[in-house]
């Protein structure tokens, strides 16, 4: 059963209050006030002089389990919120692999689930390792992007993207952070600019995300009461409060600590929040927990994964 051998993340030190971003996105002071008061967004991280390579390198640097295991890494996956993040055929992930000595790995990007691609990448890595039937094989799953263009800077009416990255070493088996189930609800009907679909998307958002959580929990043979903690995507706090109302799940057990200080770190949110959950002692041995994310922006995907610490 797929297991996470090690998890690390990197958030650059530069913080930009959302008020300073208002001009870039043509927001009125009232709209910014809504984000701060209601969505509980405060500032986002930015690394103005750094590249995508710098962000990913920062995350991998925290993976203490990687040094000495480089030769076992069969796959390196970059989970993408935005399918194209560098000019083709530039490839910073391959550059990073060269730096790290990951010469034997198959290196590729996986995505098209927007911000839910991070969970997809963990599942993909696990399936590949299982099919290889090589108990020593490992996969390195990377996430994180630059907020390089307005589309990658904010989700209209919903969130601001923050720069940062995560790195996760996936093993085909292990006794910690085992992947029990994965659910993905792909909603390609939202691949449109029609305003009525945007309203419909807002209307179904919390219910669809809650349904994905429920589907993953049921697939794992569990009920929501058994879930110790939810590691969300950092889209905003209020969307998760609504999900909690729908699920009947206590909002105190959703790790929303980083929403106000980091923003929505693309596909890296769940693992950034994993670190916070561990620091706060929220992950207990043997207890199942959920990572969940919704990806939006011309097509929507609602995903959840149940793991056992």
């Amino acid at each position: 059963m797929t297991a996470l051998l090690a998890v690390a993340d990197y958030l650059p030190p530069g913080r930009v209050p959302i008020e300073e971003l208002a001009g870039d996105f043509g927001l009125t002071p009232m709209q910014v006030k809504v984000f701060r008061r209601y969505h509980r967004l405060g500032s986002v991280r930015r690394d103005p002089h750094g590249s995508l390579l710098d962000l990913l390198r920062g995350a991998v640097a925290g993976l203490d389990a990687l040094p000495g295991r480089e030769h076992r890494v069969r796959y390196v996956l970059h989970a993408r919120t935005f399918p194209t993040v560098v000019p083709y055929p530039h490839n910073p992930v391959r550059e990073l692999c060269r730096e790290l000595g990951l010469d034997r790995a198959t290196v590729f990007a996986v995505g098209h689930h927007a911000c839910a691609s991070g969970l997809l990448a963990i599942d993909v890595a696990g399936r590949l390792l299982a099919a290889d039937a090589d108990p020593g094989g490992l996969a390195l799953v990377l996430a994180g992007e630059k907020a390089f263009t307005p589309e990658a800077g904010m989700v209209p009416g919903t969130s601001f993207f923050g720069e940062g990255a995560s790195a996760c070493l996936v093993a085909p088996a292990g006794d910690r952070d085992r992947v029990l189930s994965y659910a993905a609800d792909l909603r390609g009907e939202f691949d449109t600019d029609a305003p009525e679909q945007a309203l419909e998307f807002q209307r179904i958002y919390a219910d669809a995300l809650a349904a994905a959580v429920l589907a993953a929990v049921e697939r794992a043979g569990l009920t929501v009461d058994a879930i110790g903690v939810i590691l969300p995507h950092n889209v905003n706090s209020v969307a998760w409060h609504q999900v909690c109302r729908t699920l009947g799940y206590p909002r105190e057990r959703v790790v929303l600590d980083n929403v106000a200080t980091a923003g929505h770190v693309f596909c890296a949110d769940n693992l950034v929040n994993y670190r916070t959950a561990r620091q706060r002692g929220l992950l207990r041995p043997g207890e199942p927990y959920v990572m969940a994310a919704a990806g939006a922006g011309r097509g929507a995907t609602f995903s959840a994964m149940v793991l056992q610490h």
């Binding site: 009232m30 809504v34 008061r37 209601y38 009416g157 305003p195 945007a198 309203l199 807002q202 209307r203």
Partner: peptide
Amino acid sequence: LMEALGMSSTTGLELVLE
């Protein structure tokens, strides 16, 4: 608010703050 007036949730929140 949503059906008859086509209000988005963001606009609804602006309304509360106004």
